[in-house]
């Protein structure tokens, strides 16, 4: 099942600033450092950030690699999709901030992770899924014909239902034989 190449996170090492200083200069990405960046959560559940003395209200956290590593290269953006800056790695930040940002990532990339596939019934070009997930028992409908069930890395499966809701099987190789067979038909 390892058709996918080396996962990206193995190539990208968040510590270094890239091997080509010229490229970094050309890209002009602003990296937020923990020293002059302060994240706060408002009472209304909005994330604010104060970076380089400037306060931004209502910002969102985007992951560059939502499937391979959610903790590196986070992009902090306004609702108009303007980038305020990037975070190389969450590890650079104090624990409290880490937790805050992780919550924001969860908010944005909400996708129940399937821990047990109970049944997958295929009928007329749709498959009907019953699964235990990290968010409880979920039942959803997936359009058949490929394209809705995608391998994102060698063992991580993304399942998109008819409305575009996302479900993840984080470790395909940890499914039981029976589960794997049900899932495989849809891949």
């Amino acid at each position: 099942m390892t058709l996918k190449d080396v996962s990206v996170s193995e190539i990208l090492r968040p510590e270094d600033g890239g091997s080509s200083p010229g490229l970094a200069e050309a890209a002009q990405i602003r990296y937020l450092s923990p020293d002059d960046t302060e994240f706060t959560l408002t009472e209304g559940h909005m994330l604010n950030v104060k970076a380089g003395g400037k306060e931004h209200v209502g910002v969102y956290v985007h992951c560059s690699f939502p499937h391979t590593n959610k903790r590196i290269y986070l992009s902090i953006r306004t609702v108009e999709n303007e980038e305020i800056g990037m975070i190389r790695s969450l590890d650079e930040f104090p624990e409290e901030t880490q937790r805050m940002l992780e919550e924001q990532v969860e908010l944005r990339y909400f996708a129940p992770e399937i821990s047990k596939v109970l049944s997958v019934k295929e009928e007329f070009g749709y498959s009907y899924w019953d699964a235990e997930t990290t968010s409880g028992y979920c039942r959803f409908t997936v359009r058949g014909g490929g394209g809705s069930v995608k391998l994102m890395t060698a063992s991580r499966l993304l399942i998109v239902d008819v409305d575009g809701n996302r479900f993840i099987i984080p470790h395909l190789d940890r499914l039981s034989d029976k589960e794997y067979k049900m899932v495989e038909v849809c891949m």
């Binding site: 968010s135 409880g136 979920c138 039942r139 959803f140 409908t141 239902d161 008819v162 409305d163 809701n165």
Partner: peptide, 12 residues
């Protein structure tokens, strides 16, 4: 939070 959910499209 609810521990179960049926998404639309699923014949419930």
């Amino acid at each position: 939070p609810a521990r179960e959910k049926t998404y639309s499209g699923y014949a419930a």
